[in-house]
Design a protein around this nucleic acid. Structure first.
Length: 241
DNA sequence: GGCAGCCTGGTT
DNA sequence: AACCAGGCTGCC
């Protein structure tokens, strides 16, 4: 699909990455749980060479004055658990149809947009946040963290939450994701950025993975439950809404 | 909605 | 050996 093609752009919508070529062809990449996209310089070897499912040779022929111009490099897709996905699109329209399944991007979600997306739903608010057609980009970690920041119970019915509450939740989602991005993401075990670096947001988790431990705000015991079939941690005292 | 299933690998 | 994990789909 991409042999001999010139990359035009690299974008993201929610958890979906999309590489578009000048010709209109495109590749969609989803990391799933354990996927990694790694960029290697010429002659560089990946730290872990197992579970590599795709390798693209890259040539940088951009600016003539670029230090690395003409230096070949490689883009690797590695995914031990194979829950990730690579998908080829022949045209921009095909790619756009695929991306249209996704809700608004969580990193930029407005209070109004979140209200519009969930206020009519009878589901638990956490289930709605995890639904990529409702909101694109929030997974289990950031759902729990954002709900804690907004003081909302994960099991609260979406339709029972006020406009003001949902506006606060939208702000918490944006804030949580911004801080996570600034920290390079949450590496539990596998996640690495394109340069092979782990993310450190794990050190800032306030509820995810802390069931049974004291709440950082009130010192009460954090409760671990199941919501939408996912392990969920919240503070019963702080999250009253 | 709930649940099995897709996979590998690390921890009880 | 059993259970658990960042996600998501398909089937009741």
């Amino acid at each position: 699909m991409l042999e001999g093609q010139r990359l035009a752009s690299i974008d993201r919508r929610g958890k979906q990455l999309i590489l578009r070529a000048v010709s209109g062809r495109a590749i969609g990449i989803h990391l799933g749980m354990t996927g990694q996209c790694l960029v290697l310089r010429a002659g560089e070897q990946p730290r872990q060479s197992d579970h590599i499912h795709m390798r693209w040779q890259l040539v940088d022929d951009s600016a003539a004055d670029h230090v690395n111009a003409q230096t070949p490099a490689e883009l690797l897709f590695r995914d031990p658990r194979r829950f990730g996905e690579l998908r080829a699109f022949a045209t921009p329209a095909e790619a756009d149809v695929y991306l249209a399944r996704l809700g608004p991007d969580a990193l930029h979600i407005s209070g109004e947009a979140l209200y519009d997306a969930v206020h009519g739903s009878s589901r638990a608010i956490k289930a709605a946040l995890l639904d990529q057609a409702v909101l694109a980009g929030v997974g289990n970690i950031y759902a729990d963290e954002a709900l804690f920041a907004a003081q909302i119970r994960p099991s609260a019915k979406a339709r029972g939450l006020s406009r003001v509450r949902l506006q606060a939740l939208a702000a918490s989602i944006r804030g949580t994701l911004e801080r996570a991005v600034a920290a390079g993401g949450s590496t539990l075990r596998d996640y690495l950025d394109a340069d092979g670096n782990a993310g450190t947001f794990l050190t800032q988790h306030r509820v995810y993975g802390r069931g049974g431990q004291p709440c950082v705000v009130c010192s009460g015991v954090l409760r671990q439950t199941q919501v939408a079939q996912r392990t969920t941690v919240h503070c019963p005292a702080c999250q009253r809404a």
